[in-house]
């Protein structure tokens, strides 16, 4: 049981990642506009993004921890381009993509541009896909289990 709890927490811990501030932003004590302002972070401040709550991200900075507007952050660190940083990762991914199919099949499969352009029909998988479809009633009770309440929201103009 304890392991299960730890596993559930993992994605939250893994969410801590380097980010930078894309425009000057106030760091708040709580995730709300009217919360006390702890500091003003100038553009390009490097922070660690810890967790998200609605439109707010909790960050760790040299000036302490607090909440900033989520959309004022660029994830992935202060430098936008890191040329050559991932040569190894790239080679690894190419290798993985090439052998990612779990079933043995004829021909090369995958979702790269060329592979999509040359894909052949797969009626057996299409039949499986139809089998997994949910009807309205099943979807509604699934929503109820998750305490999801439908709301009326207009499309943007």
């Amino acid at each position: 049981m304890r392991i299960l709890v730890l596993l559930l927490l993992l994605p939250l811990i893994a969410a801590a990642e380097p980010a930078s501030v894309i425009r000057e932003v106030e760091m708040k004590q709580a995730p709300a506009t009217d919360a006390a302002t702890l500091a003003t972070l100038p553009e390009n401040t490097a922070v660690d993004a810890l967790e998200r709550k609605g439109g707010w991200t909790r960050v760790k900075t040299s000036a302490g921890e607090g909440w900033v507007r989520m959309l004022s952050l660029r994830l992935g660190g202060a430098t936008t381009a890191k040329p050559g940083a991932s040569g190894l990762t790239q080679a690894f991914n190419v290798a993985r993509t090439g052998t990612s199919g779990t079933q043995t099949t004829t021909g090369v499969r995958g979702l790269d541009a060329d592979q999509i352009a040359n894909a052949q029909p797969n009626p057996a998988e299409l039949a499986k896909l139809e089998k997994f479809a949910a009807n309205r009633e099943a979807a509604a009770s699934f929503a109820t289990e998750g305490k999801l309440a439908p709301t009326s929201v207009a499309y943007p103009k």
Binding site: G101, T102, Q103, R109, G110, L111, Q115, I116, A119, Q120, P121, N122, P123, E125, L126, K128, L129, F132
Partner: peptide, 10 residues
């Protein structure tokens, strides 16, 4: 959809 499933199965 059948073709896309030909590129990658479920």
């Amino acid at each position: 959809a059948s073709r896309l499933l030909g590129a990658a199965p479920l």
